[in-house]
Design a protein around this nucleic acid. Structure first.
Length: 473
RNA sequence: GGCCACGUGGCGGAGUGGUUACGCAACGGUCUGCAAAACCGUGUACUCCGGUUCAAUUCCGGACGUGGCCUCCA
């Protein structure tokens, strides 16, 4: 089985040829932990979890290393910590914020059926590696020190801009930001900068006397280099990270290590909108994973993590996705059907080959799901097909044996008097037996008015009519 | 302003130079006293205008629309 993946670097779907098939290495940019992860953050987490599962299936679970970092040093973190805990010592406030946010992130994404990565490094544990990169870059002429900053010398890298597909001239022509006076070139970016009072501070590299802290992009270069090596197979993240974040990562890593590539394949998931609009706090449609799972802010309902995952997988990862209540409702109905069909069924064997094949073509989850629907259809009447379907759904992370009620999280059935309902159901059955259909229909209408719906079925053995009822959802 | 994506039936959403995607909804049928559920079946869609071609939704150019990046962002 070969995988074909769309590579941002080549702008084409290329066959994946791991540098070392006994250790396929993937790095994905994880969250900067300054606020609860929002639904847009969930997209890459789910997308690359699917890829991770596929890689493990193809190359073996022990032959894949997946690194997804946590960035816990950043301007936004500092600002947010000061805002939230104004009376606390800044460093303590920052630690409190990052720890709380990281813990919530883990809780949120676990509910989405996401496997933990092989390694989840934190930026602040890799300050030494970042400083070493700064030193190396200055030493080989790709970075310089100015006013206690270490800056990357962009013009020193001849193919800077290749990943994002833009030339230096283009970028400088379109630049709208004012250029800091210590920069040699407008495009130069910060690798290390001096810390102000109340900001996290470490001893600086490159002979800088004042204490400082890393710039935005260097942490990923440091963590990827440490855990995956100088060149690895796949690097992923949201499409908005292509520039400047990934472009600068490539620049730092390649120039520091003297390599022709940082990662062989660069993958980027498309953007997410909410009900047709850009998600933003000002529009009031900013929705966190936590709110979706535990609140009732979106569509007036809580949503099970599996429902969120299925809704996300319904769109190919590179396409834009419009996050709507309607798509969650649809995903939930599908999962209800799955739960009804697979109640108590144990997985047997591996995932369906056609599903694996669909995913192997640039992670075509919609196509894979259409195959799943076919399997579901046959599993409904063919018991023998159920364990295989269960195995396939396990593989996709879409179903873990939840019951319909569990999937219908937060649903509060309208209170009904069960004894009274039973009595009415029995009265209706009696009326039916007596062929008093007018009365039996009247009783059914009465029950419907109470929110109770009925199903008549014949007992397959005795031929007796058995009526089941449930409170309408 | 510069650069880049995307535009498929009521909705969601794959894919393809000529042959059924698929799901939801809808509709028809079977079953049922009637329903519900279940099962079976039905849809001929690809923004617009040019071009290439025997043939384009599918390739090329343009228009329009939506979105992204260029500044923090998944």
């Amino acid at each position: 089985m070969t995988l074909r993946l769309y590579n941002t670097l080549s702008r084409s779907k290329d066959e994946l040829r791991p540098l070392d098939p006994t250790n396929v290495r993937m790095y994905v940019c994880g969250p900067t932990v300054y606020h609860f992860a929002h639904i847009g953050n969930a997209r890459p987490v789910i997308v690359f979890d699917v890829l991770y599962r596929l890689l493990r299936h193809v190359y073996g679970a022990d032959h894949v290393t997946y690194v997804r970092n946590i960035t816990d040093v950043d301007d936004k973190i500092n600002a947010r910590a000061a805002e939230r805990y104004p009376d606390m010592d800044p460093l303590k406030a920052i630690r409190k914020l990052t720890e709380e946010t990281a813990a919530q992130f883990h809780k949120d994404i676990a509910a989405l059926g996401v496997l933990p990565p092989s390694v989840e490094p934190r930026a602040t544990d890799h300050i030494g590696e970042m400083k070493a990169l700064c030193e190396a870059l200055v030493k080989n002429g790709h970075a310089y020190v100015a006013e206690d900053h270490v800056l990357f010398d962009v013009p020193s890298m001849k193919d800077y801009g290749r990943l994002s597909g833009r030339s230096l001239e283009e970028m400088e022509a379109g630049a709208r930001v004012e250029v800091a006076p210590y920069k040699k070139d407008a495009m130069d970016f910060v690798l290390w900068k001096p810390s102000k009072a109340g900001e996290p501070a470490w001893d600086s590299p490159c002979g800088i006397k004042t204490k400082g802290r890393p710039g935005w992009h260097i942490e990923c270069s440091a963590m990827a280099g440490k855990h995956l090596g100088q060149v690895f197979d796949i690097h992923g993240g949201g499409i908005d990270l292509v520039f400047p974040h990934h472009e600068n990562e490539v620049a730092q890593s390649r120039c520091a290590h003297g390599t022709a590539a940082m990662a062989q394949v660069w993958m980027h998931n498309g953007f997410l909108q909410v009900e047709g609009e850009k998600m933003s706090k000002s529009l009031g449609n900013f929705i966190t994973i936590h709110q979706l799972l535990d609140g009732k802010d979106f569509g007036g309902s809580q949503w099970h993590g599996r429902v969120v995952r299925l809704a996300m997988m319904g769109t190919h990862y590179r396409q834009p996705i419009d996050w709507t209540v309607e798509r969650l409702v649809q995903a939930r109905s599908t999962l209800f059907e799955i739960a009804d069909t697979l109640a108590g069924v144990e997985a047997e064997g591996g995932p369906n080959e056609d599903v694996v094949a669909a995913l192997s073509d640039d992670l075509n989850t919609p196509s894979a799901l259409s195959i799943v629907y076919g399997l579901l259809k046959s599993a409904r009447r063919n018991e023998a097909a159920r364990p295989g379907l269960r195995a396939t759904l396990d593989f996709l992370g879409l179903y873990g044996g939840e019951t319909r009620d569990e999937l219908n999280v937060g649903f509060e059935a309208k209170a009904v008097d069960a004894a009274k309902v039973e009595g009415l159901v029995a009265a209706r059955l009696a009326a039916r037996k007596a062929k008093d259909f007018k009365e039996s229909d009247r009783i059914r209408d009465e029950l419907a008015g109470m929110g109770v719906s009925l199903k008549d079925a014949k007992d397959p053995k005795t031929g007796e009519i058995v009526t089941t009822w449930e409170v309408a959802r």
